[in-house]
């Protein structure tokens, strides 16, 4: 909660500075923000519904069984594959991941999901290959996937 307050204060300062420097640009920033919000809104609402269904229908015990200690490394691996394939906005992914964590999922599995989600892009790979080459893309995403697993392992031990 306190972090949110601090960041809002910072935002207010930046916003004031922006207003002083240029009224038009600040207005453009608001327009851009509003358009981006409208673009994300349907997916955001839909995913909110999915989060609600997931947590409303699956009791914590089930989540624990699927993503907790007893699920072991297989769950971590599956989570990382799901993270690599899907393209979920972070505004949705983090609340879901946070709630799964609180419901009994392991840090390792959740961080594997988060890390591959942001580091590996199977969906964007064709575009990446076209602009940066096949080898670059395969190496970047392959190494990204491996490091995501290592990062998840380390985070599981640390946190």
């Amino acid at each position: 909660m306190s972090t949110v307050v601090i960041v809002y204060v910072l935002l207010a300062v930046v916003l004031a500075a922006s207003l002083i420097k240029s009224r038009d640009k600040t207005k453009a920033a608001f327009v851009f923000a509003w358009k981006a919000l409208l673009k994300t809104a349907p997916a955001l609402l839909g995913m909110l519904g999915i989060v609600g269904l997931t947590l409303g229908l699956l009791p914590p015990e089930t989540i624990q069984k699927l993503l907790g200690e007893e699920a072991g490394f297989a769950a971590t691996l599956i989570a990382s594959v799901i993270g690599a394939i899907t393209l979920i906005p972070s505004l949705i992914a983090f609340p879901l991941a946070g709630s799964l964590l609180r419901s009994g999922a392991t840090v390792m599995t959740i961080s594997a999901f988060i890390t591959t989600l942001v580091m590996v892009g199977v969906v964007t790979a064709p575009m990446e290959m076209k602009t940066l080459g096949r080898k670059f893309t395969l190496l970047r995403n392959g190494l990204g996937f491996l490091s995501a697993l290592v990062i998840a392992g380390i985070m599981g031990v640390l946190l």
């Binding site: 930046v14 916003l15 922006s18 600040t26 920033a29 851009f32 509003w34 981006a36």
Partner: peptide, 10 residues
């Protein structure tokens, strides 16, 4: 979103 907007503009 406001942060995104400000970054986009500036």
């Amino acid at each position: 979103f406001l942060l995104m907007g400000l970054m986009e503009v500036w």
